[in-house]
Amino acid sequence: MAYGQMAAVYDRLMTDSPYDQWLDWAEGVWTRKGKPRQVIDLGCGTGSIAIPLAKRGYQVTGVDLSADMLAVAYDKMRREQAQVKWVEQDMRELALPKTDSVLSFCDSLSYLTEEEDVKRTFSLVFEHLHPGGTFLFDVHSPYKILHGFGDQTFTLAEEEVSYIWQCFCDPLRLEVAHELTFFLRQENGLYERIEEVHEQRAYQPYELARWLMETGFVDVEITADFSGQPPQETSERLFFSACRPRD
């Protein structure tokens, strides 16, 4: 599911997201495994990772399925006087020049709800990396799907935007459907109602590690929750780093 009308309020809803921690984590991995010049950001959304990377000196290509999210990203890039190449593309059909590193943060890969789509994306990422290149990503953990979302309802009531966020969990598939209803205040004081449904799925970390290695990746590492430590039973966000072997 691509973000549609929700793109207009996405950044407002994500103001507390720890983007700096994602950036610092990536640069920490690159310090150990090789600093890239060129980076592809898969599922780049509104550019909250891609634009700061560009301002730090990297050549960044931001890839997203949603034209609405990319439009917001482009406007942000111009305001912040950065330079990023934006590409509207499905990560399962990735077709770009090779790069030094591919990253996918903010649980973008959790939107791949079929195993074959995950494996296909891993394969495409591998093909897009130069020898020695790195693949960095994070996903929701099974614990997060079952206990962080579960069958819960979240609400927000503010003057400019309000929402009702209902979660419907399939525990056997470790999958959650987010049914989102937004109410956005318009200039005339009335509210516009927007509805979107997003589906995400978790996979066991050992499964993801195995699929990475079957694809050909080496030096696969798994940590959790920005800690740099191995996952625990209650970890909510799993971080993976892997390398394409050097020739």
Rank of each mutant, 00 (worst) to 15 (best):
137 F>R: 02
130 H>M: 12
127 E>H: 06
121 T>Q: 06
115 E>L: 04
185 R>S: 04
132 G>Q: 08
88 E>N: 00
206 Y>T: 14
134 T>A: 15
92 R>A: 00
98 K>A: 10
133 G>E: 09
143 Y>I: 08
149 F>D: 06
152 Q>D: 13
98 K>S: 09
99 T>M: 02
171 P>K: 07
113 T>H: 01
127 E>C: 05
177 A>Q: 11
151 D>E: 14
92 R>T: 00
210 R>K: 14
170 D>G: 07
183 F>A: 09
128 H>S: 14
137 F>D: 04
89 Q>E: 00
97 P>C: 07
175 E>W: 03
89 Q>N: 01
96 L>Q: 01
138 D>V: 08
140 H>T: 08
106 C>T: 03
173 R>G: 05
94 L>I: 00
129 L>P: 01
125 V>R: 01
192 E>K: 11
130 H>A: 13
120 R>F: 02
150 G>M: 07
206 Y>L: 13
184 L>T: 07
101 S>Q: 10
170 D>Y: 05
151 D>M: 07
170 D>V: 04
91 M>S: 00
145 I>P: 00
146 L>C: 08
138 D>K: 04
120 R>C: 05
127 E>D: 14
87 V>C: 00
176 V>K: 04
127 E>N: 08
190 L>C: 13
110 S>Q: 06
113 T>F: 02
152 Q>S: 13
95 A>Y: 00
91 M>F: 01
81 Q>F: 05
122 F>Q: 08
117 D>P: 01
198 H>C: 08
151 D>C: 10
98 K>I: 08
206 Y>N: 15
199 E>R: 14
137 F>P: 02
128 H>A: 07
200 Q>V: 14
163 Y>D: 04
116 E>I: 06
150 G>N: 07
146 L>T: 15
88 E>H: 00
180 L>R: 05
80 E>I: 03
102 V>Q: 00
106 C>G: 00
85 K>H: 12
183 F>I: 03
209 A>G: 10
155 T>L: 15
91 M>Q: 01
186 Q>K: 09
186 Q>D: 14
185 R>W: 01
197 V>R: 15
166 Q>Y: 05
104 S>G: 11
110 S>W: 06
119 K>E: 10
147 H>R: 06
